[in-house]
Design a protein around this nucleic acid. Sequence first.
DNA 1: AATGAATGAGGCTTCATTCAT
DNA 2: CATGAATGAAGCCTCATTCAT
Lengths: 207, 207, 207, 207
Amino acid sequence: MARKKRINPRKSPAQERSRFTVEQIIQAATQVFAEWGYAGATTNHIAERAGVSIGSLYQYFPNKEAILVTLAKRHVEIAGNLLMGLVAERNLIETDLTEVLRPFIQATLELHTGNPRLNYVILSEAVWSAEAMEQVHALEDQFIDQLALTLDTHRQVSVKNSRHAAYIVVHAIKNLAHEFVIHPPAGMSEEAFVEEMVALVGGYLNR
Amino acid sequence: MARKKRINPRKSPAQERSRFTVEQIIQAATQVFAEWGYAGATTNHIAERAGVSIGSLYQYFPNKEAILVTLAKRHVEIAGNLLMGLVAERNLIETDLTEVLRPFIQATLELHTGNPRLNYVILSEAVWSAEAMEQVHALEDQFIDQLALTLDTHRQVSVKNSRHAAYIVVHAIKNLAHEFVIHPPAGMSEEAFVEEMVALVGGYLNR
Amino acid sequence: MARKKRINPRKSPAQERSRFTVEQIIQAATQVFAEWGYAGATTNHIAERAGVSIGSLYQYFPNKEAILVTLAKRHVEIAGNLLMGLVAERNLIETDLTEVLRPFIQATLELHTGNPRLNYVILSEAVWSAEAMEQVHALEDQFIDQLALTLDTHRQVSVKNSRHAAYIVVHAIKNLAHEFVIHPPAGMSEEAFVEEMVALVGGYLNR
Amino acid sequence: MARKKRINPRKSPAQERSRFTVEQIIQAATQVFAEWGYAGATTNHIAERAGVSIGSLYQYFPNKEAILVTLAKRHVEIAGNLLMGLVAERNLIETDLTEVLRPFIQATLELHTGNPRLNYVILSEAVWSAEAMEQVHALEDQFIDQLALTLDTHRQVSVKNSRHAAYIVVHAIKNLAHEFVIHPPAGMSEEAFVEEMVALVGGYLNR
DNA sequence: AATGAATGAGGCTTCATTCAT
DNA sequence: CATGAATGAAGCCTCATTCAT
């Protein structure tokens, strides 16, 4: 009776066929959530778009939220890998801080530009359950920790508390990129926005 | 399907009694939305909490969204007035930039701390209709414009495009305060957060 | 999340109109449960038969089980009143024991004959929740207590423990009547059955 | 709609392996029905508990009901054999009636005590199809017939119609034992219950 | 014989909204 | 203006059963 809401996938697909099914569902969900928002999306719609019966959907996901959580975790992971890759692929000690920041900010912006509505849904619209949030935040925290380490090593960076700084940097970039994509301000180009962001974050790190 | 959704209050309360009713509804909605979120809140629940019949609620608000829009506009207005007041009440030319920023950021943070869940709902959870968004953004834009004017006059501020800068500043502060309140990071006090924000925005404006 | 299952009516009808609605639902449920059994009955079917929208049904009953519980309590009450009335309406001291038992057994049999399927559903098919069962059993226990008192006063009755005897008598009559109606044995008339029952219970009480 | 429901096992297991499979399913079903009730039990759950695929389950049982019917018949058979054995194993003519009844009643009670929930499910909760009922009742009738013969021979028994008496005796004992186990009355021990039953049935048979 | 992925009808229930009183 | 009973579309989800492998 007091059944706690599960948000993790119900069972992992064992056979080839079912792995395909799950992938179809995820792809369909990506589109449907982006088009209709979380509340507007229906599980039946997702199943239909996936070309799969509603029963199959519920074979792998215990409820609607679990689908979004899977999407969210996947996106956070992809984004994290992409961004950490960006940082890792150049010699930070040698590179000018601005030169590290610009591609970083651009990439973040592009991540949101790619499917802004989906990011919107993931970031804000969904009513995250406590557990789901924890899972996504754990990934985010991991990323912040890694960035903090990186900041410590850069000669141009002078901050008292690198973890605090990483927190500020990550969320400033994420949230402003999000804001920019969702409510594009009149009269500011993408390039201009990136430059302002570089100035904002660059000035903060290199005091 | 295409029936355009009204989001403005249905009629303005003319008599004393009805003004009271509307106020009751708004107060109740503030609580209920904050407690249950937008989707979780029901109009019946709001009416009940307001001590008003559901019929009366619909006498003044055409639908659920309109109630939230009313709340949102009110909150944006209150916030705007408060923050503009803060800026206006001191002689900016004379005051050190940091001394202007700190109370500004603190106030923003407090606005979110006061009723974080409601702000969360207003800012993100609600599925804003295009028109509703426009209305709220118009108020936000107004505020940004005023801030841009202020920035132009401060001697310590040196930005190429003051409207761009105002946009960045407003949204950086708003979104980071929001983030901080909603997902408080472990190991960063409110004071520390404010100082980081002052550094972030101060460094940006005073290049 | 851990919402406990309610089985009591959701709200009592205040106005005349709604009292009628509730009555319609109960009447319809009586028929539908009797015709289709508990599992086979659907709330939509009940609402339709009641000439009422499904929403109205759920305004007064939180779920399907609650409807049956209401029926069950009503039936137990009616049966209890009828049977206690039977006992009360004659001077037990004067009457021969058999003369008290026969109408009592006949009435019980008729109660089950009247709507055997509904009794079946109420008595056995429904998956009684613990709380629902308690409520119905409380009424049954009340009846047993009263019967025990009556047994104590009858001169022809000689039992060691009148409450035990009342338990045996009530359930023997109830269950055998139930059995007889649900699975009528070949070659035994209703009259014959009643006489056998009189012999069974009479012999037990008057040892 | 009118597709007649099969309730007999789909095919008899010929090979050793399949006989084992069927046995596993039956054991699992016994547990699952007892734990969850008929409606609450799912075929998938039974298959899983049996360590067998759902497909295999449907290889041997055409539907959920058929599983329960198989259980029911098995239990009626076991019970019948046990009880008839009890009657047969002593010389009835010589034995005092009470001495026959007591172990008989005790055994019936124990049969129900053993797995009360399963008996509950079998006896009442399941929505018996007409055919299924017939099958179970045929076994019950057989038993009643045998008991009637026995009653005819006992010197202490004096009943007009021994088949009627057997019907009453069997169902009185069965239903009261069932009742006692399912809704144990406060303040009556198992021993006390047996004695009351002995008095009830003994008084009836030995008028 | 066994597997288990897939199916989909249909049940229960919610809740924004209307409208007769 | 207020009331609150009534509405019903529509969503989520279950689970018995099938069938390709």
